[in-house]
Design a protein around this nucleic acid. Sequence first.
DNA 1: TATGAATGAGCATTCATTCAT
DNA 2: CATGAATGAATGCTCATTCAT
Lengths: 199, 199, 199, 199
Amino acid sequence: MDACAPAIASAAQRHPDSLAKIKTAARKLFTERGYHYTRPQDITRTAGLGHGTFYLHYKDKRECYFAFIDDARVEFHTFMQARIVRTNVIESTIAQSLAAIYAFSDQNPRLLNAVMADEALFDADDPRTSSAARRWGMDWAEMLRQDIPATCDPEIVGQAIVGAMYQCLLEGDRMGASREQVIATLTQLLARALKAQPD
Amino acid sequence: MDACAPAIASAAQRHPDSLAKIKTAARKLFTERGYHYTRPQDITRTAGLGHGTFYLHYKDKRECYFAFIDDARVEFHTFMQARIVRTNVIESTIAQSLAAIYAFSDQNPRLLNAVMADEALFDADDPRTSSAARRWGMDWAEMLRQDIPATCDPEIVGQAIVGAMYQCLLEGDRMGASREQVIATLTQLLARALKAQPD
Amino acid sequence: MDACAPAIASAAQRHPDSLAKIKTAARKLFTERGYHYTRPQDITRTAGLGHGTFYLHYKDKRECYFAFIDDARVEFHTFMQARIVRTNVIESTIAQSLAAIYAFSDQNPRLLNAVMADEALFDADDPRTSSAARRWGMDWAEMLRQDIPATCDPEIVGQAIVGAMYQCLLEGDRMGASREQVIATLTQLLARALKAQPD
Amino acid sequence: MDACAPAIASAAQRHPDSLAKIKTAARKLFTERGYHYTRPQDITRTAGLGHGTFYLHYKDKRECYFAFIDDARVEFHTFMQARIVRTNVIESTIAQSLAAIYAFSDQNPRLLNAVMADEALFDADDPRTSSAARRWGMDWAEMLRQDIPATCDPEIVGQAIVGAMYQCLLEGDRMGASREQVIATLTQLLARALKAQPD
DNA sequence: TATGAATGAGCATTCATTCAT
DNA sequence: CATGAATGAATGCTCATTCAT
């Protein structure tokens, strides 16, 4: 009888971090295939675990997806915060930001889509955190408060910046444009928009 | 002789509009619920038709969805083209454009999401037309060609404008901002960005 | 009004033999694809007629299939009867028979399968004519009556002949054997079986 | 230590025999009703299992059918091999063979149809094992090699024997003939055909 | 805690048949 | 007699989830 104990104990330990494995697999599959083309079964198989293990950690597939989204959003936010240094020269802040987005995008292909996604996946009545875009826009608003012309609503300006950046990232590769071009053009454009009027 | 004509004409199609009914229903449901929460059956029921009729017009659900997207994109493009008058005053062009987007959005709630959507719904290997965003951005590039600083790539500028506008539309209602505020702020911002440098 | 009359009249005449066209198409498709892979729609399209026309001639698909089978059986029987001349030399009768089967098979590829088929397609409770095989076997029995050893039941002998011939036809092409080989071997074999014992 | 062993063994498969149950049910229904009148659902219901279980074992209905056919063919071959003893007296070999076919047919009603069936059910381009008939014929060819007149191709002879036997089995019951009659007649017939010529 | 065989509601799609013209 | 758009019951199959081990 005792002989069993160690076996059981070690079995319990065998996957001490099954949640972490599932999160990794879920992130990989959700970004690569999207919510509807990823089955819980695919996730656990990718994680090297049994199917049932999924439901030890998540009530259902949606919960897993939301956890993935929340993690990704925090990660993106942290990533960007760590990389943007507020300087007096707005061009530099913008250029750094764009470089950071590209860096994030390279490290985590297709993840930004999920981060930015409107939760259109689910019924709108779902009381879910809104897209990360709003928060990101608010960061910009905060950062630029004093640079923004008094007649402009900072939040709207923040959204505009975020929208412009994200759209250029999305389409940038489809257009022939190099990243340097995108960064240069966008920096120039946004800087001019934000600079206090000469008059 | 004449007596034959109407008979022949009416005999041609018993319900000459089953496709039109299906298109209307599909548009309604795809925008309201999205692709994955709309069953062909829902579409035909909404259209007041039998299930089988769906497959008289479309090979499968995907084909119907793509037809919907294509129609919506053409419609959006036409709508915008008809509403934008190129003037010398760039502020007015921008403001008109924003007003037009709002008008389109009001007439077709949630449709813009579909129009703008990256075809992330399906395997990227699908040789589908890319998002309408790119085309819309190119229209802007065309329109502004002479106003854009020589150092800027017009296409990138176009994408930036489109991204800013769309993002503000999306988040505009979630933020407290009124439409007038959004239009005014964005107009001012974009105009400043696009205006030739004083120097 | 009168102008319509000739048009109508000629329309009525346009397909004076829609049944014949349907029979031809049904035969082609049933033999090529089999019952379950042939839709009434395919038959009428092949016949160059409207779908509804099918039900002007047959109550349902089964009825059409049975009509096809019956026609094919009659045709096969007639074909064989016309080609077999009873001689005193049994070898010659057998060889002629085999040649005739090959001829029929060439003129009507795959049709023999349908002719011979056990009506396994449908519930056995269906009061359908049994396979053509039995009748064919009885023809042989009739023909050979006096040649058959008294201890043998002629019907059984007939079935055995038919089974041997059909099986050799079916597998003949899959084996490397030439038709001449098959005919020669089978003729020799059957003739020996049927010949009265020397003693 | 011992206490663990049974637990592990039993844990391996909760219902270790769902495949076996499905095979049994599939065999029953495919033979009774045929491929096209048997739904996967019928099979699992007969097996006392849920619908989904079917697809745990087979990719689709065809795969299940082919597995059934292959099993049946192996079983038939094994059954026959076990029952035929090669003797010097050819009559006895033939009579044993016929008795064995009847025994198999009794134990497995209608199964022989499936075993013998030309794979006409599916597109001929399917790279499936050909009918069991050919193999069975080759067994005969092998067995009789030295008895067969030099002028005859053994494979053709094998096919002829198989065809004759199968046809008599099929029609035997429809004719009034008793099994004894069939066996006696066919034995006599085949033996005479195969016996070396007196001259 | 971990497993994976089992489940069955649900889905996209087909096709024999009808009927207004 | 001829048509073909329309139908909807029925099919093969999927997949999120459960639970005995």
